[in-house]
Design a protein around this nucleic acid. Structure first.
Lengths: 187, 187
DNA sequence: TGTACATCAGTGAACGCGCGTTCACTGATGTAC
DNA sequence: TGTACATCAGTGAACGCGCGTTCACTGATGTAC
């Protein structure tokens, strides 16, 4: 990890600290210390503290959106798409639990000041997929947003439990069970 | 609302601001302004800013825990208990959506510094109830913590959507659907 | 190969600002006699 | 009924602190000739 660019080391250190202590509880000096540089040096890589947080959030969130959109484009009926989407999210969590945790926290702590509502928005993608599944007659018609919320809950609440140590391991280890839960929620 | 004690007016104003802008983004001067007093006057009612937040959180969280425990004590098999618990949470959200939203946010933003893990902890109560239902053979045995997390997700994620305006109304209006979702998750 | 120059990550010192908090004080209210 | 005193919510001014940020500077690296 020593051969990462300073920019990447800053982002990883900041993410780790944000997840551990909350975004507002971490100062630029804390981040700089973790990287092994002084606070003013951060300005060689980021325009401001806000820009740092925003870039971390938007990059991660958009990447998640694209991978979820790819899963939603899986061929076949809705159950196949849902299976792919749920497994994708589980894989994302297991691949980089720090990034996943950061996005989970930021959703609450920072979404109000970070105004993205693009086509890459994962929530939008899931809602659209659920609505399409209903329209196609693959699953019973109900409020698609409520059902999408419930599916998200079945995935993200276990992820939250992992974050706070109430559950051990990662989402990949539970993906079969979570897929089954999600299937039951939409049926 | 003018006949509330100043103490209660402070707590309600603070909660409203915390939910709207995030806990760390609200200063004592903001709270005092909303109440119509000056910041130093807050110290006649609360020992410190931390004490204010902590009391709001602990009071609300413990009250929720007690009401959830009462629902969990419903007579009968596990499905009757789960029905009562889910409807209780939906009612709590509809009764006071500001308090509910505050606790939902605090769970992420402040739980790390607020160390309660009592018998009144709602998460603990739900986990215990699910485990007991499995032990009694009322529902299939699986990891009780994962199933409890999924049940929470089915309730709290729609609540989060309400908080951010993705869903309209309140949880009470959707309680029958949410009960049905929770039932499917545990079966 | 050596010299001059440009680039830029990183530094130390310092800034202005808003924060939580303290403090001496005010003024209304209630109680004692 | 009037007077003296205690209580306490609320105030204005001020505090020290840590924050994000700026700035002139350093020193290593790369490029031009």
């Amino acid at each position: 990890m020593q051969d990462l660019s300073t920019r990447d080391r800053i982002m990883r250190a900041a993410m780790r600290l944000f997840v551990a202590h909350g975004i507002d509880a971490v100062s630029l000096r804390d981040i700089a210390d973790a990287v092994g540089i002084k606070a003013p040096s951060l300005y060689a890589h980021f325009r401001s503290r806000d820009a740092l947080v925003q870039e971390m959030f938007q990059t991660g969130y958009a990447a998640y959106g694209r991978r979820l959109a790819a899963a939603a484009a899986t061929e076949g009926r809705f159950p196949a798409k849902l299976d792919a989407m749920v497994r994708t999210v589980c894989r994302l969590q297991a691949e980089d639990d720090i990034l996943f945790g950061f996005l989970l926290l930021t959703q609450h702590a920072g979404l109000r000041s970070i105004p993205i509502e693009e086509a890459d928005n994962p929530v939008r993608i899931l809602c659209d997929a659920v609505a399409a599944g209903m329209a196609a007659g693959d699953i019973p018609p109900r409020d698609p947003v409520l059902i999408a919320a419930a599916v998200m809950g079945v995935i993200l609440q276990p992820a939250t439990f992992l974050l706070y140590g109430r559950l051990a391991g990662n989402l990949s280890a539970m993906q079969d069970q979570i897929v089954a839960l999600a299937m039951r929620v939409v049926s």
